[in-house]
Design a protein around this nucleic acid. Sequence first.
DNA 1: CTTGAGATGTTCT
DNA 2: GAACATCTCAAGA
Length: 207
Amino acid sequence: MNLLPLPPAYYTQPTLVLARDLLGKTLWRRTADGVVSGIIVETEAYISACDPASHNYRRPTKRSQTMFGPPGHAYIYLTYGMYHCLNVVTEPPGQSAAVLIRAIAPVAGRELMAARCPRRAPRDLGRGPGRLCQALALTIADNGLDLTGDALWLSHSPDMEPLDPARVATSTRIGISQGLDLPWRFFIRACRAVSGPAKLNRGTADG
DNA sequence: CTTGAGATGTTCT
DNA sequence: GAACATCTCAAGA
């Protein structure tokens, strides 16, 4: 099995290319409690230079400095005062862009994830950016983690059949009030682990 | 399946 | 003060 972290060069791909390519990859998380993993089924791209919904669009903020850093690191922030969101930083240092990981289909360590989310249905453990971070025990304390390290990393998914490009769909993004026209959400069609309203999840068939 | 209200703390106007 | 890359719960179709 090839469970080693994807190399730094992987994260130098353009943000929109990476947002799509991350679908079907496996996300791993190691803490003192053990290792958990899941297959990425839903992402969103945020590119500050041209995207009014992106952090750092108006001006750089302290919260989102990590987005200016090197690609292949985690940008994690607190949202709505209660939940966390995990992003993969993209683009060369000095540029601000990232891919929000919105949902995973849990694979390894499902018991540990369930223990972290007491009243949650097993089906919903990785469904949504806030729930995903809770299942993976990610907080702002983990902001900036190197995704080629051994606490949080990505790998190929050798036990999964190659993702059929026809199963990749796009839509507008969720939970924003600006940049509503940009089709920068990517997800796997007909996947129960994908978040968002069913209506949006029909998506656009563009491979 | 859907809708709507409330929780909660940092960032922005 | 208002907005915010969210979620839970309750109630209705």
